[in-house]
Design a binder for these strands. Structure first.
Lengths: 187, 187
DNA sequence: GTATCCATGTAACCAGTTACATGATTGC
DNA sequence: GCAATCATGTAACTGGTTACATGGATAC
C-alpha cells in the first residue's frame, strides 16, 4: 500500500477546528503541537491548493484594510468525511530511524568524551522541553474553557505523552553517561 | 544546511564491523538494530554503488559453488575517516511526526471506542516489543564474547533505550485509555 | 532605519519507499 | 511441487525539505 500524505490530514484537522490561512496553520503547528507534529510552508501551500481542487476545503480571500490579504480556508462536508475516514484507520507503522542511537551503536571508534558531550547536550535539550511541557500542562489544567471542550482529554494526553517521553530520555541519557564513563575507567 | 544521507553512514558503520553484502546489511538492520534503525534494498544497493564510486568502500565478488554470487563490500581508510567525522558531529534535529498523537488530537469527532481500540492495539504492540527487547538484553548480558567487546556498553544502551521507550508508551496507553473512558462516562 | 512579523508562493532537490524483475537453492 | 530464503538490482514515485523571491506592516 502506498504511503499516505499526512500533511493533508493535519491540515484538514486544523481546519476542522476553525477556518485558517496557510500561515495560521503553520503558526498553529509551531506553537500548539510542535512536540509531536511539524509542517513547513513549502508543503502546506501546495497541499492547500490540492485540497481546494478536490473540493475538501474552500478558499475565501480576506481583504484586510492595510494588512496583507489572507487566503482563509474552510473545511467542507467532503473534507470532514475524509478526515473522519482517516481518523478511523489504524495508524501506519513508520520504521524507526534514531540517529543518536545509530551513532551510539558505532561509537566505539571515537573518543568516549565526544559521545558523552553529545549525550549531555541531548539531555539538556530534553530537560528544557520537559520544563516547557510541564508549564503548558499547568496552564492547560487551569483553563476552564479548554476543560469544557470535548477535545480536552485528547489534548491533555498528547501533552502527557511528551512529558513521559522527555522524562525517560533524560533518565536514559544519565544512565548511558554513567555506564560509558564507568566502562572507560574500568579499561 | 542540507539534510545528510544517513543510509550512507549506516552502511559505513556496518561495514566497519565486518565486510558485508547488501543483503547482509539488510539482514543486520532487520535483526539487530531494527528497534531504532531501518533500511530497505531500494536504498542500500544504489548507495553501495555510490560509496564504491567515491572510494569509501571496495567490492569483492564472492563466487559460491552452487550458491548465488555475492558482492562483498569492505570499508576503506577513506570510508573510516568519513564515518568518524560523522560520528563526531552532533545529531541533526529531526522534527517530530507522530501520527498516533495527531489522530488523538483530532479525535473528538469520532467515537471514543474507535480510539480506545487503537490504543489497545498500540499497547499490545509495544508490550510485544518490550518482551523481545528484554529477551535480547538477557541473552546479551549472558554473552561473554559480547561483554568483552569495546562496543558492549554502547550496544547495551541502545537496548536500554528501546526498553524504556516501550515501557513508557505502555504506561501512557493505559493512562490515556483510562482518561478517555472516564471522560466518556462523565458526559 | 532596521529587525521582526505577516503573508504567499515556487523551484529544485533528494531521501527513502514501493513495485517490479529475475533466478538459484533449500527445506518441507 | 511449493514456499521460503538467498541474492541483486532498476524504475517510478512522492513526501517532505530547503532555498529563493516578494512585499507590506509593525515595533523598537
Amino acid at each position: 500500500m502506498p504511503k499516505v500524505n499526512k500533511t493533508k490530514y493535519a491540515i484538514l484537522g486544523v481546519l476542522d477546528m476553525r477556518p485558517c490561512s496557510g500561515y495560521d496553520i503553520k503558526k498553529f503547528c509551531d506553537s500548539g503541537i510542535s512536540h509531536f507534529w511539524n509542517e513547513n510552508f513549502g508543503h502546506i501551500y501546495p497541499v492547500l491548493k490540492e485540497l481546494e481542487k478536490e473540493g475538501s476545503i474552500t478558499k475565501a480571500v480576506e481583504q484586510g484594510d492595510g494588512k496583507p490579504s489572507r487566503n482563509v480556508y474552510s473545511i467542507t462536508q467532503k473534507g470532514k468525511e475524509e478526515l473522519t475516514q482517516w481518523l478511523l484507520q489504524p495508524v501506519e507503522h513508520s520504521p524507526a530511524r534514531l540517529e543518536l542511537l545509530l551513532k551510539l551503536y558505532f561509537a566505539k571508534s571515537i573518543p568516549a568524551a565526544s559521545m558523552i558531550e553529545e549525550l549531555e547536550r541531548v539531555k539538556e535539550k530534553h530537560a528544557q522541553r520537559l520544563e516547557t511541557l510541564l508549564k503548558m500542562e499547568k496552564l492547560f489544567l487551569g483553563n476552564e474553557t479548554a476543560k469544557s471542550d470535548a477535545g480536552f482529554p485528547f489534548w491533555l494526553s498528547t501533552l502527557r505523552y511528551g512529558i513521559y517521553d522527555a522524562e525517560f530520555r533524560i533518565k536514559w541519557c544519565e544512565e548511558t553517561i554513567t555506564n560509558i564513563s564507568a566502562h572507560q575507567l574500568g579499561k
